[in-house]
Simulated scan of single mutants.
Amino acid sequence: MVIADLFKKTEITVKNIELGEVETLNELTPEQLQLIEKGLQTVGFELLDDKRKQIVQKIKTIIIEIVQNQSKILQKINPSVYIAESIGRDYKYLTTLFSEVEGTTIEQFFIHQKIEKVKELLVYDEYTLSQIADMMYYSSVQHLSMQFKKITGLTPSHFKELKANKRISINQL
């Protein structure tokens, strides 16, 4: 809605708006691009007119959607195949591009996103570690624990314990 309003205010006719992409009816002038860029910056966004950055952003969006939705896609297809098919490019090209632009690999970005989701699930305290490992498609609790410790420096149980110690129960308020 914010992006649609921005384009409306600048009187640029939009053909289609999707997450991370805007398609206009006409080619934008340099002045229009500058207006859009300034408007985006005021709301905390940036204009990605570099095709390489656009592809990297698409990869990130796909990974975040897979992880946040604990997608069943992971049961059926390897994430690298899914990413390549979704973008319509060879995975080797995508991984090289991602590494050049981001300074990390797609796999590392994917692992970090999974660990962030695991942290979120641990904080909510609704699931056991075994359930979380299943939900996030880890082969075992041990695999999840090893990866969690490698990324955070803490075991999942220690992380959960630290978060629990910071919480104040209602009767102590």
Rank of each mutant, 00 (worst) to 15 (best):
L33D: 12
L35R: 15
L35V: 07
L35Q: 14
E37L: 01
E37A: 11
E37M: 01
K38H: 07
K38Q: 12
G39N: 11
L40G: 09
L40S: 07
L40C: 11
Q41P: 04
T42Y: 03
V43K: 08
V43T: 12
G44Y: 05
F45N: 05
E46H: 01
E46V: 11
E46D: 00
L47K: 15
L48F: 07
D49Q: 08
D49K: 10
D49V: 15
D50Q: 09
K51H: 09
K51Q: 09
K51N: 12
R52L: 05
R52G: 00
R52Y: 14
R52I: 02
K53N: 15
I55L: 15
I55A: 14
I55P: 15
I55V: 15
V56L: 04
Q57C: 04
Q57F: 08
K58L: 10
I59R: 11
I59N: 12
I59V: 14
I59A: 02
I59F: 06
K60M: 09
T61L: 11
I63Y: 09
I64N: 00
I66K: 12
I66W: 10
I66Y: 07
V67C: 06
Q68I: 00
N69R: 11
S71G: 12
I73L: 14
L74T: 10
Q75P: 09
Q75V: 13
K76W: 02
I77G: 13
I77Y: 03
N78K: 07
P79W: 02
S80E: 02
V81K: 14
Y82Q: 02
I83W: 04
I83R: 02
E85F: 10
E85Q: 11
G88L: 14
G88H: 06
R89L: 06
D90G: 13
Y91A: 10
K92E: 04
K92W: 07
L94M: 04
T96M: 07
E100M: 05
